[in-house]
Design a protein around this nucleic acid. Structure first.
Lengths: 347, 347
DNA sequence: CTGAAAGCGCTTACAG
DNA sequence: CTGAAAGCGCTTACAG
C-alpha cells in the first residue's frame, strides 16, 4: 500500500506531535532541554511515522560530521583490507558511515581528480596508501584540507613523529627484527624479495621494510645482496624470486609480505629446495593463510585492525580541533616463528 | 594563507562569472542549453575559485542519486571482498560513491537498526549476505525499499529466476560439477565440509553448495555421508575436518570454500595423509592463494568481480524504473583442476 | 538561452 | 523548556 509514499520528514513528525520541528530535532539529537511529556509525544509520532533523520540534510545544515571517506589502495591486499575493516568497525561503533574509493594504480589521475572524489569540501578522509599514486593523492589531500585528513601506512618511527596526521607501525624496525633473527640462526646473510617501492625520490627506491633489512645487515657487518623487486601479486613474486631459488648459496629470504612469501615458497618447492632445511623464508603481515600452509610461514604480525581504529580516532581528534594525538593503542609488530625458517644447511 | 576560507559555492561562482547560480548549475551538469561564451565565463570562474559541487546538497535537492550503500558480510572473506571490489569499480566508473556497512554476526540488530544505517530513506543499496543475520537484513531492506535494493550472494538458478532483485551464480550447479568430477575420477563417494548455513528454515539446514553436492551424489546413486559443518575460519575448518581426516575410508572431500580447503589440506598433512594420492580435496571460489599452495588446490572459479558489477548494473536498472533485468555478463562457475585432486588410492 | 522562485530536510544561533 | 527565522548548497519546474 504505502509503496510510493514519501518518507516522513521532521515536519511530519512535528505536525503529528503538535510541536515545532525544532523540538523534534532536539529529541532526535538527545538534547536534555526537552520536557518529558513533550519528548514522549514526539517519540510516539516518530515511531508511528517510521521517521528516520536524513543524514545528508543534517550535514548540509551544519551538523557535526558523521561520515568518513577512505581513499584506499587495492583492497585485495590483506593489510589494506584489514586496515579498512578496522576503520569501518570503529566508525560504525559511533554511528558514522564510511565511504570507500579505490586508488587504482592503473588509472591516471590528477590532484583534482582525487579531491573530486570527496562528496563535499572538508569531508573527513583517511587515506590508506603505499605506492606512488597513493603518495601523490596523500599530498593532494594534505594540501587541500590538512585539518580533515589522516593517512595510514608503512612508515618509520621518524616520520610518525614528525607528521601528526600519520598513523602506522615502524616497518623498518620490524624488518630489522626479522633480519636479525635469521642472522642469529646462523645465516651468513639474508636476501630480500621486495614489494614495489612507493617513490624513488623520498627513499632512494627502497621501502621501509627494505631499509630496515639493509640497516640490520649493515649493523651486523654482513654483505648486503642486491634486493629483488617483485610486483604485488603472488604470481609476480613467483617469477621474480626465481634467481634466488636457483642460487644454492642463498639460504634465507625475507619477503616484503606474505603473498610474496607464498610465491617464494611455491617456487622453492617446485625447484626441489627444502624449506626450511635448505632455505629459510620469512613473510610479513601474518595473513590468515600463513599459519596453515605446509610448512606454515614464519612472518611478522601487524595489528592492522588496531591501525585502522587508531586512524579513525586520530581523525576525530583532529576534527575536534585538537593538535595533540592520542597515544597509539596497538601492539608493536612481532615476529612469529613458524615452520619456514631455521638454521642454514651445513656447508 | 587561505587555510580557513570556506569552500566556494555555486553562488560564489555565479557572482564571479556574472551569471545566475542556475546557469552555473547548468554548466556543471553539462546541460547543452548554455551559450558557449557564457559557459566559458563560468568555467573560468570555477577554475579560479576551485569550485567543487557538493554532492550532499545535490542529492538533497532532488538530483539523481550518485551513491550506493553496501551492507555487507565480513570483508575478510575472499568472495565478499572481491564482490565489493567489483561494485566499487563499477560505481567509480560512473562517478558514484560507495559506502560500506558491515553486518557483524556478533552484533544483534533489529530490522530498524539495519534501515537506520542508511544515510537517508530510499538510499540505493546492495546487500552482500549469506548468513542468518544477513538474510534478515535482506528481508528488512526488501520490505522497506524494494525499488532501491539489490542482493548479491550464493543462490540457485531457481531463486535467481524468481527474484528480479537477486544477483548470483548457481552455486548448486557448481558444487554438482565438482562432485561429479570426483566421482568420475573413481571415488566411491564424496564427503562435504560445509560453510555455515544461512538459515535452517528455508533450506533444511543446507547451503546451496551442500544441496548441489547431495543432489549429484543422489543422481549417481551413491551413498550420501553426513556432512561436516565448519565455521568460516581456516582454524575452525582445521578442527572440524579432523574426523574425516582420521577416517581412512574417506578419499574425497569437497569443501565449502578455499579457506576450508586450506584447513583440510593442512590437517591432512599433519596426519600424514598424502594429497592427492591418498585423499582428494577440492575447494570453492578460486582465491588467489589456491594456485600457490603445495599442492595447489583444485577449486571452482567464481567471477566475483563480475558479480559485483552485475549487482551495480541491476541496481541502476531498477532505479531507472525498469522492471526487466540486464542479462548476466559474467561466466558460469568453472572447475579448475590443480594438484589436490586425483583418483582414489587403490584398495 | 537565461533568471527569479520554491523547496529538499535538517541545524545552528536568537528569541522568549 | 519551546518556537519563528535564516541558511546550508544545490535542483527541479516555471517563466521569459
Amino acid at each position: 500500500m504505502a509503496e510510493k509514499k514519501k518518507a516522513a520528514s521532521i515536519w511530519d513528525v512535528a505536525r503529528l506531535a503538535g510541536v515545532s520541528h525544532q523540538t523534534v530535532s532536539r529529541v532526535v539529537n538527545g538534547s536534555p532541554r526537552v520536557a518529558d511529556p513533550t519528548r514522549a509525544k514526539v517519540m510516539t509520532a516518530i515511531a508511528e511515522l517510521g521517521y528516520r533523520p536524513n543524514r545528508l540534510a543534517r550535514t548540509l545544515a551544519g551538523g557535526a560530521p558523521q561520515s568518513v571517506t577512505v581513499l584506499t589502495a587495492d583492497t585485495s591486499l590483506y593489510g589494506v583490507e584489514a586496515s579498512l575493516r578496522g576503520i569501518e568497525k570503529a566508525a560504525r561503533a559511533v554511528g558514522w558511515s564510511v565511504s570507500i574509493s579505490v586508488l587504482d594504480p592503473a588509472d591516471t589521475f590528477t590532484d583534482d581528480d582525487i579531491i573530486s572524489r570527496l562528496p563535499r569540501a572538508g569531508e573527513p578522509t583517511i587515506i590508506i596508501a603505499h605506492d606512488e599514486p597513493g603518495m601523490r593523492a596523500r599530498q593532494a589531500l594534505l594540501d587541500a584540507q590538512p585539518q580533515a585528513m589522516v593517512a595510514v601506512g608503512p612508515y618509520t618511527a621518524d616520520e610518525l613523529e614528525k607528521s601528526p596526521w600519520l598513523v602506522g607501525m615502524d616497518d623498518g624496525e620490524a624488518a630489522g627484527q626479522a633480519t636479525r633473527y635469521l642472522l642469529e640462526m646462523g645465516h651468513h646473510t639474508v636476501h630480500h624479495l621486495a614489494i614495489p617501492t612507493s617513490s624513488d625520490k623520498t627513499q632512494g627506491g627502497k621501502t621501509h621494510r627494505a631499509d630496515g633489512w639493509a640497516a640490520a645487515l649493515q649493523l651486523a657487518g654482513r654483505e648486503q645482496p642486491d634486493m629483488i623487486m617483485s610486483g604485488w601479486t603472488i604470481a609476480e613474486a613467483f617469477e621474480a624470486v626465481q634467481p634466488l631459488i636457483e642460487d644454492r648459496s642463498v639460504t634465507a629470504i625475507l619477503c616484503g609480505n606474505d603473498d610474496l612469501a607464498l610465491g617464494a615458497l611455491r617456487a622453492a618447492h617446485q625447484a626441489g629446495r627444502d624449506v626450511p632445511g635448505d632455505l629459510s623464508i620469512v613473510g610479513f603481515d601474518n595473513a590468515p593463510f600463513t599459519a596453515y600452509t605446509t610448512p606454515a610461514i614464519t612472518t611478522v604480525n601487524q595489528d592492522f585492525l588496531g591501525l585502522g581504529r587508531g586512524a579513525f580516532e586520530l581523525l576525530r581528534h583532529k576534527l575536534d580541533g585538537s593538535t595533540s594525538r592520542p597515544a597509539p593503542c596497538w601492539p608493536d609488530p612481532e615476529l612469529i616463528v613458524r615452520e619456514t625458517s631455521g638454521p642454514p644447511p651445513r656447508r
